[in-house]
Design a protein around this nucleic acid. Structure first.
Lengths: 97, 97
DNA sequence: TTCATATACTTTGTATAACTAAGTACATTG
DNA sequence: CAATGTACTTAGTTATACAAAGTATATGAA
């Protein structure tokens, strides 16, 4: 869900996703590259993202940019809803129990 | 974490935990018995809960009551903190991304 | 200039653990 | 007495996060 969320605004490549996951979560999500890339491959298999190789602007390194698909946006909406329900359920129990 | 939380106040048996998980989460956590009991066994292995067989009051059914241990209370505190950090991280990304 | 670090992606293997399904058994209620 | 609810157990499947090791290029400091 978090990876899809980061791709919601614009296509990004793996290394950048790892950095944003770390920065935007306030240091909570520290993914190793060997953790993130398999997630991207799975999202690609599921057609929730599409990718294309592209040379970075100014630099001569080749990067694989991942872009969220329409199906990905729908899945993200569903995931957000499931997460919200789940988190609500957890907080209820942590408060009430 | 949720199972430990439900045991925080008093010892409970499996079936009751399933009912409370459903009721107190507002219907979000619907565990099958085959899902809950292995969780209890693992918590027992980890010494986070202890159990004893006991006849139910008034009834003649035998029930296995699980009680949280001191180590379980410490683990619960740690789990609550980890959950809070994780949830905060998720919400940050869901907002900021 | 060369060594270390950062960038960038891939693949394999392991460990965790949630979940389903099927089984046992007794109690309760219509 | 049949169906449903209560109560626990075990085996097997699946998902997937994660680490580790590998490849490769770029960059900056000594």
């Amino acid at each position: 869900m978090l990876v899809l969320k980061l791709l919601e605004s614009e296509p990004k490549y793996g290394y950048l996703i790892i950095q944003e996951l770390k920065a935007k979560s306030g240091g909570t999500f520290l993914l190793k590259d060997g953790t993130l890339y398999p997630i991207l491959y799975r999202l690609e298999d599921e057609k929730l993202v599409a990718c294309r190789w592209s040379e970075a602007e100014g630099k001569q390194v080749s990067r694989k940019y991942y872009e969220i698909t329409e199906a990905g946006r729908q899945a993200l909406t569903e995931m957000e809803s499931v997460w919200q329900s789940m988190a609500d359920g957890v907080f209820k129990i942590m408060r009430e129990a």
